[in-house]
Design a binder for these strands. Structure first.
Lengths: 141, 141
DNA sequence: ATCGGCCTTGCCACAATGGGAAGGTCAAGC
DNA sequence: GCTTGACCTTCCCATTGTGGCAAGGCCGAT
């Protein structure tokens, strides 16, 4: 049985977050010492590491709530887990695509900016005139 | 001179956000009608569209504050703008890389999960045992 | 007994946006 | 003129996940 600080160090989850997860009901309230200190056993560390790893993979705490219940459910079907993970992966793909679209648009602007001491700046122009693409300089067509 | 609703429709920024940006000092408090309604002119729409476009490119409101002051500063050097944009682009790259790392780890787990009615699930195993990689099944080496 | 380090609870903060309540205003129709 | 509906105002709350701080209690070592 360890205190919250040791559990935090051993699991990689901050003490603050351990209390928060407990408040959210992700981990059981667990035992307390006579003085009211939270006490953790090896079993609790497993759950904390599970949560931490799921956070590393970008699952939301609500998704982790479901993952934890699946984890503890011996009757689960792996299809349920896979569905959740695949849906999260699809969400990651969306976020990646969205960031890449930003990056591409930004790269076009940055690439067309001289970056010298003069005030003329296609980046500002591109922000002010969202329709126009900077390197698509309108020739005499 | 238009009301906030028209300005919102014309700029693509919600009325809620227009008020918020005003509270943050991104846009000038501007004129009010006798009844206290905010009034917007064409000039304000330019600023709102500028902000919206910068948001589309993922700039934070604090970065946008700087962009707006550069935009309005005739003495700016485009180098300042480019530096800000490039730094934002680097941050986007970091976020993309982080999401892609998540996605890759998740894809490995999802790919190794049967997704049937049986409870055995490498995804849950991978979350519980962060060190182990699922398709790296330990053969008799 | 005292001091440093750990623990407790609780509140505030972030960033950006939406939701909603309670109330004032304006224009149109009757 | 009065009602009705659409719009506006301000103010508060919620989100998500994490950190910080403050006031106070506990524990071990000197």
């Amino acid at each position: 049985m360890m205190n919250i600080g040791q559990a935090a160090a051993a699991s990689g989850v901050s003490a603050k977050m351990i209390r928060h997860y407990e408040g959210l009901g992700l981990i059981r309230p667990g035992a307390r010492s006579a003085a009211g200190y939270r006490l953790y056993a090896e079993r609790d560390l497993h759950a904390l590491r599970f949560i931490r790893q799921a956070r590393v993979l970008g699952f939301s705490l609500e998704q982790i709530r479901t993952l934890l219940s699946l984890w503890q459910d011996q009757e689960r079907s792996s299809a349920d887990v896979k569905r959740l993970a695949a849906s999260h992966m699809a969400e990651l793909d969306e976020r990646i695509a969205s960031l890449q679209a930003m990056r591409a648009a930004l790269a076009a602007l940055v690439g067309s900016c001289a970056g010298d001491q003069r005030p003329d700046c296609p980046i500002l122009a591109g922000l002010a005139e969202p329709g126009r693409c900077p390197e698509h300089v309108p020739g005499p067509d």
